[in-house]
């Protein structure tokens, strides 16, 4: 008893660009949930006309036509640097740097760390899916110990490749007072949206650098079905990477 309807609009955030939907990410990719939470945060703060969105190279590059906001695509890992330049040239704009774990923790770690050290008034969003998605699932700094990827077929060895990078803990340890640092997960999109709103508010108040890491899914490269995707995200990944707020302006803050 199916009925075709055209008068009902999908529950998309108002700042999404409808002409480019459905978006280019793989089925089951967590980027869609992260960008939906970010879009809802932008809508609720009413800042769509002030946002400048910078995307890195990698899967996050596919978000270049995602929002109805000004978007810049940068060199690999230089998202925070370009975002900083735009923010310094136009301080009344709200600048968001969007990157993956490869762009933020591997090739772009110096820019992320130094942007945090200088306490730049930008919002940095990093999507962590424990591998390099676009190039075929190679081992990334965030790959879990023992996790099999394209370039670690016997599982990541802690002895040879070291421990996974814990970004928010690192940024929270070095960022100045007034910075906002948190880690959310796409399994809890409402909490993730709350973190994005607080991060954008920290930038709007001018209190300091704001950084949110989002734990995300990659069914294509994990080679998992929907059930195993949730099981990996909510099991081993959540154990390795605790979610919560690590630094909040005006108070200490710690993982939940």
């Amino acid at each position: 008893m199916a009925v075709e309807l055209t008068n009902v609009a999908p529950a998309m955030p108002a700042c999404w660009r409808k002409e480019t939907k459905t978006h280019k990410f793989c089925p089951g990719c967590g980027h869609g949930i992260v960008l939906k939470a970010l879009g809802e945060a932008i809508d609720e703060l009413g800042i769509q006309d002030k946002v400048i969105f910078t995307v890195d190279i990698g899967c996050c590059l596919l978000a270049i036509d995602f929002f109805n906001v000004d978007t810049v695509q940068t060199h690999h890992g230089r998202t925070n640097a370009v975002c900083t330049g735009i923010k310094r040239a136009t301080p009344d704009k709200i600048c968001i740097a969007y990157m993956g774990d490869g762009g933020g923790y591997a090739i772009g770690s110096q820019h992320l760390v130094n942007a945090a050290a200088r306490n730049e008034r930008i919002t940095s969003i990093l999507v962590n899916n424990t591998n390099y998605g676009m190039t075929g699932g190679q081992m990334a700094p965030t790959t879990l110990p023992g996790q099999k990827t394209e370039t670690s077929p016997y599982g990541r060895s802690v002895e040879q490749q070291g421990q996974p990078t814990h970004g928010p803990e690192m940024i929270a340890a070095m960022a100045a007072e007034g910075a906002y640092v948190a880690r959310g997960t796409v399994a809890k999109p409402k909490v993730l949206k709350k973190y994005f709103k607080k991060a954008l508010e920290a930038q709007m108040n001018g209190s300091g650098f704001s950084f949110v890491e989002a734990l995300s899914t990659c069914p294509t490269n994990w080679a998992t079905n929907a059930k195993k995707t949730w099981a990996f995200l909510e099991g081993p990944m959540a154990e390795e990477y605790p979610t919560g707020e690590f630094k909040v302006p005006g108070e200490g803050g710690k993982a939940e």
């Binding site: 008893m1 009925v3 075709e4 309807l5 009902v8 609009a9 999908p10 409808k18």
Partner: peptide, 10 residues
């Protein structure tokens, strides 16, 4: 504005 068609069931 682009419109999307939907199928509804209760």
């Amino acid at each position: 504005m682009k419109e999307f068609k939907s199928i509804v069931n209760e």
